[in-house]
Design a protein around this nucleic acid. Sequence first.
DNA 1: TTGAAAGCGCTAACAG
DNA 2: CTGTTAGCGCTTTCAA
Lengths: 352, 352
Amino acid sequence: MKQTITIYDIAKEANVSVATVSRVLNDTAPVKRSTREIIMAVIEKHQFQPNALARSLLKKETGTIAMILPDITNPFFPEVFWGAENVAREKGYTFFLCNTAGQYKRESEYLGILREKRVDGIIFLGGRINLTQCPPELSQEVIELSRHVPIVLVNGNLPKSGLHRIYTDEAEGAALATQHLLDLGHTDIGFIGGMEDTSTTQVKIKAVRGKLKEYGLKLRNEWLKPGEFSVQGGRELMNRLLEEEHRPTAVLCVNDFTAIGAVKATIEHGLRIPEDISIVGFDDSPLSTAVIPELTTVSQNTNELGELAVDTLHRIINGKTPRKQIVLKPQLIVRKSTGQTPISPLQISVDS
Amino acid sequence: MKQTITIYDIAKEANVSVATVSRVLNDTAPVKRSTREIIMAVIEKHQFQPNALARSLLKKETGTIAMILPDITNPFFPEVFWGAENVAREKGYTFFLCNTAGQYKRESEYLGILREKRVDGIIFLGGRINLTQCPPELSQEVIELSRHVPIVLVNGNLPKSGLHRIYTDEAEGAALATQHLLDLGHTDIGFIGGMEDTSTTQVKIKAVRGKLKEYGLKLRNEWLKPGEFSVQGGRELMNRLLEEEHRPTAVLCVNDFTAIGAVKATIEHGLRIPEDISIVGFDDSPLSTAVIPELTTVSQNTNELGELAVDTLHRIINGKTPRKQIVLKPQLIVRKSTGQTPISPLQISVDS
DNA sequence: TTGAAAGCGCTAACAG
DNA sequence: CTGTTAGCGCTTTCAA
């Protein structure tokens, strides 16, 4: 690698002091036009790029923020990242991306590294902030760090942490979806997918229960099958659901991945969607229009989650006091995977 | 934010010099056990984390690498990132992720920023390195930068740049896929998707042509429809293809996105897959098993691309001389979207 | 084993 | 308008 040149080299060649070079570099004080031009020429000639490390060391800001997330391979996260990156770039930040594969140990490692690297802020998604019961040490670690660097939690929480949060009202989303099925005449409704110790799963289940209760219905135990968030998971869960003696006429899924798995299982069972069974996803990821039938799902405004997270971070960094919590309203997106109630299999068996 | 504490504070409190603190921090020289313990205690007490900026400034290495890519939302890239990140972490690097939305200007901006931030290496995917004709200024910019920081190109090239490259043999992949269709008895084969000025598209088209030629066949112009890389693009292209007077019995797609679009269009036309039309994707992204029917596709070993890229970078950084080019062999993954030739629509119309 | 001191490359008073 | 100089927080000789 070529030896890198410094502000001193430029100063010497332009016959000025480093201060003056710094001034033209940052446009931080008036410089005589002629000397400025000389300096610019020298800079241009050598393709000089100031060393951001040196500057950051002094300024105590790095123009760098980080996103910690569990699985960049899950399409939900790239969408959030996309939104975040767009506004970050506008504001002059570059992004560290920290993929934790859902391991808390990796989260901790990254937390340490990011602190050392003096990032200006951290956006945290998934993992420990999504647990219904986050172990105190894990929680404490984040809270402690937040005393040194601004942190915002996206779609998650750390009880009593007082950290800034941006999240979708998932309860409302689940309620919306349930209402939709109810409106279509469904009364036999199931729920599948999602790890059980995860708040995103529990919140949805609770909301579904609540909505059903309004109608004097309940979520039967055999029709409640948490598990994972993956396509394969959804498929297996749905298979098990379809092998129950009585089947629901509609099922809500914890996310689009699971819903797609459910669609596959349903079709493999020779059933039609939505004629025999209605299926609802969650997230409105790009996948939801990639399958046949296109998924009825709940939109999370994923990009916006990212945008708002960066925006909030930016405000904190600049000493403002943005809202502690921003909650986004989800939206029901009705597509082709839901329809009117068929004659309930339950009824059939009752009748016969 | 709490005031951050430095190595001086530690030194003072432990009654030693900063040099000694540095020594225990880096285990870079023997330190008497007792003093080490005192120092460790003070460090622990204050949760002290050394400032990586200061260290990097001195050491001329940041433990940071960057990945520049066009669209993190396209599932191919997260897969590469996943592989890359895994080995990067092992080797102690953290990742900047630079999403360029396919804009060359953003690529240039990032190139500048990364140089300023003194990343230890850069992995470049898509965008300008994927053009059949990369404008010299764009190419030059990368080559110039590569004199200051190691760069490896993944699935792309910059003619005469002599840069390190890791890539899949896409020609072979396309040939494999074509052979597969030929073996199933197809002779009427089309190709859709991919921007025309893009090497990934041209390479595949050329390979398909070559393979067909071996069999005395040719790729008809009406059946060659480049365009975009998206689901929607694939759908429109396929629609147009299906409205041709004569239809192919099989179509190759530039990637899985396009293939999924093609599947949708086909089904919307009331045709069955693979009974009426066979469809082949490319990439073997997670999507390919999410659709019905599951896609026959060409696997690119996406994770491995990322792993090898980091590995290569790491070697360069450490003064070794890794291979200039590593080419990965693609693999045909036969699933449900391809089957025996139907009675060719062409034949029908000829017969009748 | 330990400390003193000289930077790494840049910015920001403070003088002039 | 411009130059001098003192750091930012750390590592690394060189001496002791």
